[in-house]
């Protein structure tokens, strides 16, 4: 993908996030271009989830800016950011266990989120078609009317991915979408993500290097709240600083 000519969807400038004195992010800069997959890796506590939290305003930004299509969205309210077209999948499946899969997707569907429209909303053919579509893409058609609490961990992850798809955001932020999945499920998730990438920009946090290799176009390595390295899988793996940080770690060994 030719990065230089593409439009920047998300632009993060000198982002700092602090938690009562602890600097979780220290001056992070990141550009996400239209239609690309950016994979963020890094050891535990590197600030990966915090970065996504700061983008969607789950964590307050101390200084720096987040621009979305050139518009400053720093510290806007979460629902405003979501309505603009930024979809977020959380690390642990953040789904509605007491509702059916269908209702979870229905909630997430793109559209007006006002009170009166929600009261008067009709479940149209178009909406059902869209729900059918995302359920099919995530392989959940047969579980459509099961309560989410009855699903496996991997299926719950898919429910949340399906919710993000139903939002139809222009950028998708995925926090460890394959956590707790079997090898087959992980692979299938990789294929889903690739298919999403055809029409969306994606930022994905991953630990699993096999999975990273399956999907990655550009990798950003975070370490202690700052960007340590950036580049293709090969570039990152051969970067001496990255090797030092990961030294003795199973992840990079398995990948090397």
């Amino acid at each position: 993908m030719t990065v230089a000519t593409a439009e920047s969807v998300l632009s993060i400038k000198d982002l700092n996030v602090e938690f009562s004195g602890f600097k979780a992010l220290k001056g992070v800069n990141l550009e996400v271009y239209d239609g690309e997959i950016v994979t963020i890796i890094g050891p535990n506590g590197a600030g990966k989830s915090t970065l996504l939290d700061a983008i969607v305003s789950k964590s307050p930004v101390a200084s720096g800016h987040v621009y979305y299509h050139g518009k400053d969205i720093t510290n806007k309210l979460p629902y405003e950011i979501a309505r603009m077209g930024i979809g977020r999948k959380f690390q642990n499946p953040n789904v509605y266990n007491e509702l059916t899969v269908f209702d979870n997707i229905l909630l997430a569907l793109k559209g007006t989120h006002g009170i009166f429209s929600s009261i008067m909303a009709k479940l149209t053919k178009a909406k059902k078609g869209k729900i059918y579509d995302v359920l099919e893409r995530t392989g959940l058609l047969d579980q459509a009317f099961d309560e989410v609490s009855s699903l496996s961990h991997g299926q719950k992850q898919w429910v949340e991915i399906a919710m993000v798809l139903a939002q139809d955001p222009s950028i998708v932020l995925l926090d460890e979408p394959t956590a707790g999945m079997t090898t087959e499920e992980t692979h299938a998730t990789g294929e889903i993500i690739k298919s999403i990438a055809k029409s969306h920009s994606i930022v994905v946090i991953e630990h699993d290097m096999e999975f990273v290799k399956q999907i990655a176009e550009r990798i950003v390595v975070l370490h202690q709240g700052a960007v340590l390295a950036e580049g293709s899988v090969q570039e990152v793996q051969s970067n001496p600083k990255v090797i030092e940080v990961y030294l003795g770690r199973e992840t990079i060994n398995a990948a090397a």
Partner: peptide, 30 residues
């Protein structure tokens, strides 16, 4: 009211109000 989408949103606020704000709903307004 509770049979409509509105009811679904109320129940979702009850279960996890943070999540639904990331789906674009103004929880406080509801």
């Amino acid at each position: 009211l509770t049979q409509s989408n509105f009811g679904l949103i109320l129940r979702s606020i009850n279960e996890n109000e943070n999540r639904i704000s990331f789906l674009g709903y103004d929880v406080a307004q509801y």
